[in-house]
Design a protein around this nucleic acid. Sequence first.
DNA 1: CCAAAAGTGTTCGAATTACACCCATGA
DNA 2: TCATGGGTGTAATTCGAACACTTTTGG
Lengths: 233, 233
Amino acid sequence: MSLYSKVAKHLVAVDCIIFGYDVLDKEIKLLLLKRSIEPSRGKWSLAGGWVKEDESLDEAASRLLLNLTGLNNVFMEQSYTYGSVNRDPGARVISTTYFALTKIQNIDNKLRELNGAHWRPISSLPELVFDHPAMVDKALTELRRQIKVKPVGFELLPEKFTLVQLQDLYEAIYQKIIDKRNFRKRLLSMNLLHKLDEKETNTSRRGAFYYQFIQERYNNFRKNGFYFNLDVN
Amino acid sequence: MSLYSKVAKHLVAVDCIIFGYDVLDKEIKLLLLKRSIEPSRGKWSLAGGWVKEDESLDEAASRLLLNLTGLNNVFMEQSYTYGSVNRDPGARVISTTYFALTKIQNIDNKLRELNGAHWRPISSLPELVFDHPAMVDKALTELRRQIKVKPVGFELLPEKFTLVQLQDLYEAIYQKIIDKRNFRKRLLSMNLLHKLDEKETNTSRRGAFYYQFIQERYNNFRKNGFYFNLDVN
DNA sequence: CCAAAAGTGTTCGAATTACACCCATGA
DNA sequence: TCATGGGTGTAATTCGAACACTTTTGG
């Protein structure tokens, strides 16, 4: 510390943009909280917290997510660092955002409620504090970009899912209708999916087969890229 | 400040990955310095500095670039924030990187030399301190990604350039040979370039026509994207 | 007149898009 | 038996990739 004395130090926070996907109402949702402290107490915000002296930014983000949802080992990636002097009216705070993709049905709802966190669809978000709307925008843009190149979509679905559910997810993210036959053709040609014998029978009489992704191929795609381009300008 | 008392504060730095392109030897270069302070005094590093209390991260990065090169209003974009606890052996420092694209011939060489900064080709970088190699890698990946989607390549070229020079630049960035006819076809079909009457006559007897980009269309492309895909796997 | 770099079109194959009907099932 | 959502193939078009020769000019 002595080496770098006489230098300004800063409050550093981490804010998490936690995405979830609701298979039933086919909407991308964000996990949001009501602030319990001033400033802007009672307004909605992303899940945020301070970075401790002895933890990395990544660790801080994971800690926040764990405390809020009970989830560990979730897909999470740094998005952007917000450093305007007056972005937080309470003090000069520098904040790094992370976006996480979670399986909505896996989170610990006791923990969630204890923290006053709620899922809200991105199509009708409440008013967010500070520059949190910009944070959400940027993370969403990043999600749309990445989903073309990594199979991140699956992080949002349950372990077993139908092709219809998978397509619904992509349509929700792109906000665009996708041709069913072309979609299936592309996906199945990747040899990424394993068809199960089981059917999902709640949404239709006929039932739709469940699929799982083949873990090995999936990991490979995560590393080397995916190229599933639905070319949404 | 009082509102957020009792919270750890951090040293926050900015590091700039400053790219330049040398038309003559057709290489992408980085502007690097020898550290004048401990730790690692004498080793090479990116241009870095502390973030002041009353400036944003963006401002800090611009200030560093200005002090080092005399350049203002340069293409500069935040890349990533590095927050491992022990990344800097001297102290716990959180550092946000920015990458800048500069016209190598426009920088103030007096200032540059005064600061002990040198251009080094990315193909043979000296050993860099700390996690600076990772910072460079990430910025380079980002540059390669962006050049497909925004016409950022032009930021690295002089105002007037030949099609050969432009292609050389793309080849330097991609490390890949591009078909001359296809390259020109694509580029000219975008109506982005304006052919001048003047020729560059140093590199050939015949001479190659200079081009400029059409500012209006250029700005438009920067906003809305570009789709200049040379599809490098 | 020749060496050296600039400039210029066409063909082929692959990939993407558009598009409509049959199937299985429970009520 | 019928209403509902699940599942399937082919033809047309577009786009990207490959490829070689002519032009200009200073020495």
